[in-house]
Design a protein around this nucleic acid. Sequence first.
DNA 1: GAGGGCGTTCGATACTGTCGAACGGCTTGT
DNA 2: ACAAGCCGTTCGACAGTATCGAACGCCCTC
Lengths: 258, 258
Amino acid sequence: MPHKAKNPINSDLTLLKILNGLEELGGGRIQDIVNKTGITKSTVHNHLSTLRQQGFIVKDGDQYYLGLRFLRLGEVARNRGPLFSFGRPEADKVANETGELTNLSTVEHARGVYLYRTQSEQEVRFSTAAGEYHDLHCSATGKAILAFSPESVLDKFEDIHGLTRYTENTITNREEFEESLETVRERQLALDLEEYEKGLRCVASPILDKDDRALGAISVSGPAMKFTGEYYRETLAEAVKSAANVISLNITRSEETY
Amino acid sequence: MPHKAKNPINSDLTLLKILNGLEELGGGRIQDIVNKTGITKSTVHNHLSTLRQQGFIVKDGDQYYLGLRFLRLGEVARNRGPLFSFGRPEADKVANETGELTNLSTVEHARGVYLYRTQSEQEVRFSTAAGEYHDLHCSATGKAILAFSPESVLDKFEDIHGLTRYTENTITNREEFEESLETVRERQLALDLEEYEKGLRCVASPILDKDDRALGAISVSGPAMKFTGEYYRETLAEAVKSAANVISLNITRSEETY
DNA sequence: GAGGGCGTTCGATACTGTCGAACGGCTTGT
DNA sequence: ACAAGCCGTTCGACAGTATCGAACGCCCTC
């Protein structure tokens, strides 16, 4: 279980439901939120008014949207820990050198989260997936992280989410999965061979602190048709591995000087 | 006034106070929040527990932190409208070509907000200011935007925040300010000559929709000692102006195709 | 081993969040 | 032009609960 609040505050829950609704809808009218959440019209109205008064919500005509206030809160969250500030420059380099979609991930609430995602040579980049969650057992970043984390992290993940099957390649057996982590530990590399989505492959390498515990991972992802042979297993693998090393080193070094 | 909720929800206000406190502190224990907000210990505890249960807050030892959930909400907010997705690649180019700190701003709640901020050639970048607010009357981006916005935007800003003096260069007179906007309109360029902070200069150019209304602005900022003469008034000015043009054009073009 | 600081739990009370109904503005359709 | 919906907003009443203070228990310090 994720965490059980003894005295959960009801109005907080409705507030968060509204935020979730707005997130999924990308914005909408009061009635849209009512339909999505089942909360009464006047209640939704009161919450949104309060949020707007405090600058967290924007109203444009009769449409409500999440405000840029959340951008700030998100930045604060992202800059907790050194992973993003040290990882972003290296991720950019990897993206420029390989031309592939490059990801920076960490773990929160027993799931993988993208801290940063970038791709070079794109006129218009798709809307970033920063903050999106993904499962740990079927992603390269997730496996890279799990391989260098206490087993309790995997326990907790399995407990909450289970080893869900997404494709025929998804590893759903705990023992088999733990064995695969062994190779990850040896090579400091984790693969995702279409285990989450058919046609999608990844390579990841863990970012470690001075005690060899994973802070996160860096990966590149792309089409299975392109991610094959030497390019996949050597070129890209080396790129993420060396980037991960640089990031790990810089983080460790920065923490030594105080 | 920003907006007056008729029936503001008290517990929402306390929730938001707690979030604000965590944002400013960057994280902290319950007692820290109590000291900062004046809310009772058990109340803070209950709210934080609820937020944690819902995945919005992380607890590490006895420290509470804003969760990466807010990163997602922030991304949704940032990707409302085309400004970020079209502006980011160009901002990156400007940063790479000039080597200067490059900003992408828009307006929300009658204040300027950084959507994006980047600087090349930095091993470790300072923690990003995305989502931070700034005044409209003493920033290059703010003036660029105001010059191509209905006067009501300036009215509202002055109403809420006033033309606060920050340095000796700050324009605090409404008439004088409006005149300065005239030149901005003619040249499609706005300057900030240490009007917000002594030693800090900016150049900005507005990003316009097809009706010549400002969606936002792009700017570079740097030390007054470096931002002088031809480099400042020609090289940098042209860089932001042409970037702004490209972004405006791409946005307009994308909206024509449907 | 005592003291203090802090997180958590618990119980009572006054408050207020929630709901449904009703009003009023805006658009749609005839 | 008028009627009929649709939707946002307001209002009043009730039940539910957010808030508070006190008490418990943990951990660290002295």
